[in-house]
Write a protein that binds this DNA or RNA. Structure first.
Length: 450
DNA sequence: TCTGGGGTCCTAGGACCC
DNA sequence: TCTGGGGTCCTAGGACCC
């Protein structure tokens, strides 16, 4: 069944007497902190926090730190005095380690259940439908993962992914409990849903919660019991799916084969600001080679490359943001080909005299690399079966580069994806650059298109 | 002084075709 | 003078997630 498709449900069973599925969500507890603790047992029982890149903000907290009221994502400097008072042990992030630990956890789970979907670095859905004693089995999973990897997990079980999420939340909340929770039809489920505000539901954020509350839908129970028509009017197709999931009718199937990425981005904030073009070139080169690796590892090639640079959003210093979208003549996953374009783009958007705080690239229009040949022939108008020699390919690319250099004039700018613009708009009183979102109109892109 | 990085899905509306 | 309507594809942007 495709993602988001409904099963047949002409009259949903509101009595919830018979759940047809059993889905478990296994979620690692305070994952990054747990990883650090595995290798440093003396961290057990003491407050621990993990920081983002450049030690900017808090991205993981042990229970002790959560108890201090420290929220996810707060800037480190704001809580520093508090941390010092409570002797919080603080770590810079080590994503290589976390990725490795994640793999160990996931392969352990894979041995325990045949049907699973890795949902994020620290979460995995398992299909337990038909398993005799789900709670017993969950206990087994929990202790095995702990024994083999040293990582503690919480497990929530429900008839749909959304309810498994809810159950998991409860399992986490109950710190002294077994770390396992199963939701079944009955009074307890009603109570749970009525105590859960809509923004606590998976898939409903701040904005949608506001929309719902304006219409007097405050709890998950309110939402579950609202009429289909009403929900569709307020939330569209997304809402329909959530409501069915809350009713215990599974609409989201397990994605066992992770689909190839549709976009790949690599970006970093700099620890110290960068002023020179050379400094940015160095960063961009690193980004491109990393992104190209990701592309190749999933057997893809990218047709469009965006490069962007920006100063800080914060503070009073003068601000600058710029980006450029480049369409490659042929989708590529070759580092030096991508790099040529990225560096040309960078050269166009770089302006002297600013303190750059962040840069990045985004690869999009990603296709399987197998189709590159065919696409190439289309563009060249050549019959399939006649391959282009490497030399000819090289000459063609060089010509394109020449054309860019001669034809592309002054850079009046520019393109920004919605994410980037959003960040920029938050800068108060700042004169926004001229944005366009139609990258086909950009002079450089026009120059590149045949 | 110091504020993360990497993704996905849905939808409205325009372009285009017949 | 009068100026259709339905279907499909694409894009930009909003919203969400960990």
């Amino acid at each position: 069944m495709p993602r988001g498709a409904f099963s047949d449900h002409s009259s949903p069973d509101m009595s919830l007497t018979a759940f047809s599925k059993r889905i478990a969500l296994v979620d690692c507890n305070n994952f990054y902190v747990s990883c650090e603790r595995v290798f440093q047992p003396d961290l057990q029982g003491v407050p621990v926090a993990v920081l983002s890149n450049n030690d900017g903000c808090i991205i993981a907290r042990s229970n002790e730190v959560k108890a201090l009221g420290v929220k996810m994502g707060v800037p480190y400097f704001q809580v520093r005095p508090l941390f010092e008072r409570h002797h919080v042990r603080v770590f810079s992030s080590n994503f290589a380690l976390y990725g490795d630990m994640s793999q160990r956890v996931m392969s352990t789970l894979a041995r325990l259940s045949p049907d699973f979907e890795i949902y994020s670095i620290d979460e995995c859905f398992l299909d337990m439908t038909g398993f005799g004693e789900p709670l017993e089995y969950a206990k087994e999973i929990r202790s095995t993962v702990k024994r083999w990897t040293g990582i503690g997990v919480s497990i929530g079980i429900g008839p749909s992914k959304t309810l498994a999420k809810v159950a998991n939340k409860l399992a986490k909340k109950d710190q002294t409990g077994p770390g396992i929770r199963m939701l079944e039809p009955g009074d307890e489920l009603e109570e749970t849903l009525s105590a859960l505000p809509v923004e606590g539901i998976w898939g409903i954020g701040k904005s949608l919660a506001r929309r719902l509350k304006r219409r007097k839908i405050h709890s998950a129970l309110n939402l579950r019991d609202a009429s289909d028509r009403r929900i569709t009017r307020i939330l569209g197709a997304l809402g329909q799916r959530i409501v069915y999931e809350l009713r215990g009718i599974s609409c989201l199937s397990l994605e066992e084969q992770p689909p190839a990425k549709q976009t790949i981005c690599t970006s970093r904030s700099f620890a110290r600001s960068v002023r020179t073009l050379e400094g940015l070139q160095e960063a961009i080169s690193t980004f491109v080679s990393r992104a190209a690796e990701k592309l190749r590892s999933q057997g893809s090639a990218a047709g469009v490359l965006t490069v962007y640079i920006m100063t800080s959003h914060f503070g009073e210093s003068s601000k600058y943001y710029n980006s450029l979208v480049l369409e490659l003549p042929v989708p590529s996953c070759i580092t030096h080909e991508l790099l040529n374009y990225a560096l040309i783009g960078l050269h166009r958007i770089y302006k002297k005299g600013y303190d750059y705080k962040k840069a990045g690239i985004l690869l999009s229009n990603i296709v399987p690399s197998g189709s590159i040949q065919r696409d190439l022939f289309d563009r060249l108008g050549e019959p399939a079966g006649v391959s282009e020699s490497p030399r000819r390919r090289g000459e063609r690319l060089m010509k394109t580069l020449d054309r860019i250099n001669t034809e592309f004039g002054s850079d009046t700018l520019i393109y920004a994806s919605s994410d980037l613009r959003k960040g920029w708009r938050t800068v108060r009183g700042h004169q926004s650059p001229r944005f366009t979102t139609n990258w086909r109109e950009l002079p450089l892109v026009k120059a590149l298109l045949p």
